[in-house]
Design a protein around this nucleic acid. Structure first.
Lengths: 138, 138
DNA sequence: ATTCATAATAAGAACTATTCCTAATATAGA
DNA sequence: TCTATATTAGGAATAGTTCTTATTATGAAT
């Protein structure tokens, strides 16, 4: 008899997953926290973090790290890269061909076994670029 | 008459730059701090951080971010990427052709103005790989 | 060499993002 | 409905970095 890992289906977990999906553009834990609080006002931040961890482990969402000090969460679990706006901080998807890990390994990069490659792009989003342009010309 | 920005040449600043150069393999602030303390035992951590910031601003060293929660510092200011060992945490240089920012801009990546691209690679260094192999076969 | 304005320092408080701890609560199988 | 225990709320703890302030030391002018 297999030992079943009991994972309870709590309201908090459901609302947290829903929030990541609905907020869309790569929310941070705090942004998810305030969205969840609108539905379940007594939810604690640690509950948000714990469930985000579980959802990442279950492959239902992805954690986007390396874009700064905060972790962003992504409902799109397919392989893709991200770009972060230097001005407003939001993170968007980017479609450039991903670097192939097997290729890196066959090239013996520093003799390391390569496990993950992640491209972090920093830029200025269209809205902020326009805003900056407006400020400059006035 | 130009207003000259007075930057004093302190012992701390000299030893901090020296330490980054001599430690070589991408030390963190704490590692630099303990190296500096061997020469100037009363140096404080905030002095290390402040001077590292100044040295980065002056282009004398580079800050390597995005490899985890810590910032690593690099005396090699030329363009290159980094790989981090998942086991021991050390960061090494990597020579894969860097992504060209102008190309990304001409491709209008998400309509962003692209400023910086940084490839973060995670893997296992030769030493740790060997160690793991030894543990497995015993 | 001495003086002196102020840049830089040491020490530690504050901050930010995240993880950990514990008593209370709520889920789901019996 | 009962019950074992997974999960929660709340807050303390942690890690890495930045900020604050009284004190010190640099270097330009005397």
């Amino acid at each position: 008899m297999l030992e079943v890992e009991l994972r309870r289906n709590t309201r908090q977990k459901r609302v947290i997953l829903q929030s990541v999906e609905q907020l869309g553009c790569h929310p941070t834990a705090i942004q998810i926290f305030s969205a969840v609080r609108k539905v379940l006002p007594r939810t604690s931040l640690s509950t948000v973090y714990r469930n985000l961890g579980i959802l990442v482990d279950q492959g239902k969402i992805k954690a986007v790290k390396g874009t700064g000090t905060e972790i962003h969460y992504d409902h799109n679990t397919g392989e893709h890269n991200h770009i972060k706006c230097k001005v407003c901080g939001r993170v968007c998807d980017v479609n450039i061909e991903p670097v192939d890990i097997d290729t890196l390994n066959s090239e013996a990069v520093s003799n390391f076994v390569v496990l993950e490659v992640c491209m972090n792009i920093l830029g200025i989003c269209p809205e902020c670029a326009e805003q900056l342009e407006r400020e400059k010309t006035q």
